[in-house]
């Protein structure tokens, strides 16, 4: 029996795809097209696509879409503020008066801003798919330290990410201004330089989070907060 290369391609591409349960998800195909050669996800997807005409046509759509997409612009690149402003918009004056009174009471009781977080925690903004990757932070969330921290570190389940992934940490103030960001490191353990520590003030709450980049995904840890005593 004879077959030309064109026959071969038409046969392979024209294969009817029935059950799609073993196929990569649209999210995985989109991530693969978003560019991360040599990542485990890409390897998994391309190995599958090589034998699946339905996924190959979908990957081609994702690639075409990606090729049309612009590179990152700076126009909206500023971080979107964290945490969501949990502010009451009640317009009655007595609310602010009550708030002030509450602050005075809390201050008198010697309670810090972080104590209030424990009663009203900020929802942790975790990117989809990152659940369970992040372990314990050091310093622990909502810790009141004796001095500005010298290091920030986070336990991460390395078995669930690309071994080539890099880590960075960003330090924020309460208005989501990025005060400092580390360079990409091979491990989620960061020494705070004096330049970063010098901008920290005692009695003020700060937040930090770790970014994991593996060339396919960028995952961000939940937000961890700390303050330190005068």
């Amino acid at each position: 029996m004879k077959l030309t290369k064109s026959d071969l391609q038409k046969l392979t591409c024209g294969r009817e795809t029935g059950d799609r349960t073993g196929c990569p998800t649209p999210e995985q195909l989109a991530a693969c097209a978003d560019g991360a050669p040599s990542s485990p996800l890409t390897a998994h997807v391309t190995a599958h696509v090589a034998g699946c005409s339905a996924c190959s046509s979908e990957l081609r759509v994702a690639l075409a879409l990606r090729s049309e997409w612009p590179l990152e612009t700076r126009s909206v690149d500023a971080p979107v503020p964290f945490p969501p402003a949990r502010r009451s918009y009640a317009r009655v004056a007595w609310v602010s008066a009550l708030g002030t009174a509450a602050c005075v009471v809390i201050a008198l009781l010697g309670r810090s801003a972080l104590d209030r977080f424990s009663r009203d925690p900020v929802p942790a903004p975790v990117l989809r798919g990152a659940e369970g990757i992040f372990g314990d932070p050091a310093p622990a969330d909502r810790t009141v330290l004796d001095a500005a921290p010298a290091r920030l570190s986070l336990q991460i389940d390395r078995t669930r990410i690309d071994p080539q992934a890099t880590f960075s940490v960003a330090l924020f103030d309460a208005e989501a201004t990025r005060l400092w960001e580390s360079a990409a490191e091979p491990a989620p353990d960061f020494a705070l330089p004096d330049s970063a520590r010098s901008v920290l003030r005692p009695g003020v709450a700060y937040g930090w989070r770790v970014f994991v980049r593996d060339r396919v995904e960028t995952w961000q840890s939940p937000l961890y907060r700390f303050e330190f005593r005068p």
Partner: peptide
């Protein structure tokens, strides 16, 4: 609450919806 790469972020959503 924080979008590190808006362009890539929007691409993923658009591509996923299309697929």
């Amino acid at each position: 609450r924080e979008i590190v790469s808006p362009s890539s972020y929007l691409y993923r959503i658009a591509a996923t919806a299309t697929l």
